[in-house]
Design a protein around this nucleic acid. Structure first.
Lengths: 159, 159
DNA sequence: CAAGTAAGTTCCAATTAGGAACTGATAGTC
DNA sequence: GACTATCAGTTCCTAATTGGAACTTACTTG
């Protein structure tokens, strides 16, 4: 199977990765959350080649994560802004950054601290069940298959 | 800049992506959380080519996310198990899957529902501040630079 | 002895990435 | 009026990675 075809899998994770799972894409989104909007700014901050950046921005715009907005005419210039769909990826990025803070920082410590403005404390993200409020671990989750794909998604005991 | 060098950036997200940001890697981890441990099982479920799978498993093991454990001698065979570091990625995968459920499902609906065993309700993951318990949006976060890299991480108003 | 299992490795063609230069429309400066 | 800068890309070439299939090694089972 080709990577470019994973969006056809009946798996929400696979479909998500079809949009944001390419090299560089999540770093583009990191910069979007920092307020970067313009092509050359992305390019200089990331050091990615221009045609890869062009490809990733196009895929993000096609996927609905960013919108391409003209900020001037003559000459026509566009910038890229997060949509509501894009802003909904913030928890993914926050958890990934926190994971890197925990396991991959060097002696100088994590490069950035994310402070919650409302309470003034550094953000400590946890996966919580919003129904009961308890912290959730992988083994606390039971998966229920949609009957439409029953038996085709989860591994069997044999395999 | 080459993608393979992003682990040298002073950015926890970039360093995380150096380990799990390649094509296929997060799908390998999805299957790990479903209990898949063996090479051929990953290969058949994912449809990824065997040498790409081999490369990704090696990078995950080198990065500390999986450990390679012998499950038999003669012939020597290994399986791959999540470490504590790997299990800490569960919130990332849960949020990504939930994002796909919300925006990318087809008519038949999300393929899997994640039910919290303790309370019996479908998991609805949100980013919450564990200090004050409030739900957190991107604009609620203020970034503080580690003085060691002050001025080098965040974009300026000019750029 | 032949076939099966399991975890890879090897080979080749096709795709993608990295690096640098180039394009096109326009504005500002000498 | 020519020269330079800005900005969002595109084009070109080489190098690296991927997809697909076959092959290898070390056993076990019938």
């Amino acid at each position: 199977m080709r990577w470019q075809d994973i969006d056809q899998q009946p798996c929400s994770l696979a479909r998500s990765l079809a949009i944001i799972g390419d090299n560089w894409t999540l770093l583009v989104l990191r910069d979007c959350f920092l307020g970067v909007r313009r092509f050359d700014d992305f390019q200089q901050r990331l050091g990615v080649t221009r045609h890869v950046l062009s490809d990733r921005l196009r895929k993000l715009a096609d996927g609905g994560v960013l919108e391409k907005v003209a900020y001037q005419e003559r000459p026509l210039r566009h910038e890229y802004r997060l949509t509501a769909m894009g802003r909904d990826l913030y928890p993914v990025i926050a958890h990934l950054a926190q994971w890197g803070d925990k396991y991959l920082a060097d002696e100088a410590g994590p490069p950035l601290v994310r402070v919650h403005r409302q309470c003034g404390e550094p953000l400590v993200a946890k996966l919580q069940c919003s129904h009961c409020g308890d912290s959730v671990e992988p083994q606390d989750i039971r998966l229920e298959e949609n009957p439409h794909w029953a038996g085709a998604l989860l591994p069997t005991k044999a395999g």
